[in-house]
Design a binder for these strands. Structure first.
Lengths: 242, 242
DNA sequence: CGCTAAATTGAGCCGAATCAAAAGTCGTGG
DNA sequence: CCACGACTTTTGATTCGGCTCAATTTAGCG
């Protein structure tokens, strides 16, 4: 059973800019279907040229790049509401891969149709520009993190990101949220080795700052964790949903 | 004497998508003037809210973020033709600073006017989306570099970037181009210490791979340098000019 | 129960950081 | 014209954060 845009469960989350019933109904015209994938499935491959654009409806995944040497760098983590495939849509081909970490459900939009849509609704085109700018901002933060922060700061920074994002998506209950990634994924995102990431996580656990085990992240005091992470920027901005 | 868009010296460089005389003339309507700054001048500050958008006409600069600890990370280097200020334009305020490394001349566009412009010319709005996507791509590469490459690979990677970009801008003559940055700038971009960056540059010089001294970068064999850098992607894509 | 993948833990090593100091560069003023 | 100060580049010595190697434990799962 395919979810109708009007009933989109994401639109109600605080992370997103409110959408009118009309807007949601209008989106429906471009949704050509839903894609359901199992964990560990590749959604988009580096160098591929997918004719589709997706919005994550359920589940989580990650974006990564592979170097010629075989090493992998995780560029970012995909959460519900994230828009995927814009780069391929614009640049002709993907420059990074996207893989499902959990089982995922994605809203599928037709690429060609989508461009027409943006031409008609210039306000939505601005939303896309806005999203790009936010993503750029995030990547800048990540770059500074990987480049300048120490291991503890890096891990703390990442957990704070996860937690804040989770909160805006109503995924947090009693200070805990699901975080279905492997330690290796986090290590590859922060430029740390698996072993050191593991030991750093243990350190945060010992200090009662954050506990990530069995796919559940628990944070008692986000602000204390953020302070440790040298993280000043606090609030997550509400973003448009596509 | 202000340069007229029709005579824009950048439009002829191979880096940019060809623009018709009409298009150039049209751009003129949104250019409200030129800004000339001395080296070491801050163009935009983190947290500021500039009402202007710029395109770099002459000179070079860099973008950077400062962490609460005081450490600085250089997000990227500004070359002629680069568009500056979109983030502030879209998100309300800058999340990184931009500083001039050499004396710079910038074409100034009025922000409010610019939005109207995009509404009228949807093709130009796509250009902006396209630019964002390319920038995102670059940041992804940089992230993977800082996260996964060794010191030699990092420095080689950066020099290859500079060189390729320079070539597309006709800045290279006899294998050499101006590169008016400090070693500290490169160090802060790659997440390396100044000392180690210096020693790594010396190593590349010894191996006859690249020589960057006195603000001049000389590369004998880009491909060999790129191979060392674990860099597969080769050509620089032509981009729209704003 | 054996098999495979993920998380842990310990030991030793190395790439890059830090510390320290010298040497080259350049503008400025006496 | 030279001396002075401020900055950048270079070089050497030493230290350490995080990596690699290696082995063990824990957690599903057919």
């Amino acid at each position: 059973m395919v979810t109708k845009c009007v009933n989109c469960p994401l639109a109600r989350k605080p992370l997103f800019k409110p959408m009118s019933r009309d807007e949601l109904a209008y989106m429906q015209r471009f949704k050509v279907g839903e894609l359901v994938v199992d964990p560990r499935t590749s959604l988009l491959m580096e160098g591929s040229n997918s004719p589709q654009l997706y919005t994550t409806l359920r589940g989580m995944g990650l974006r990564y790049k592979t170097l010629p040497s075989g090493r992998r760098h995780v560029i970012g983590f995909v959460f519900p509401g994230d828009f995927i495939g814009l780069q391929a849509g614009v640049m002709g081909e993907m420059e990074h891969s996207v893989e499902a970490s959990t089982s995922m459900t994605l809203c599928v939009f037709d690429r060609a149709e989508f461009w027409n849509f943006l031409k008609l609704r210039t306000d939505r085109a601005f939303d896309v520009i806005w999203l790009s700018a936010v993503e750029e901002h995030f990547l800048g933060e990540a770059l500074a993190t990987v480049g300048q922060r120490t291991a503890v700061e890096k891990v703390a920074w990442a957990l704070v990101r996860f937690y804040r994002r989770g909160k805006m998506l109503h995924m947090v209950e009693h200070g805990s949220m699901p975080l279905p990634y492997k330690q290796q994924d986090l290590a590859d995102a922060l430029g740390l080795s698996l072993v050191h990431t593991n030991k750093t996580l243990a350190k945060l656990r010992d200090r009662q700052l954050a506990n990530w085990s069995d796919g559940i992240l628990s944070v008692h005091d986000v602000d204390r964790l953020a302070a440790l992470a040298q993280d000043d920027g606090s609030e997550v901005v509400t973003r448009p949903l596509l």
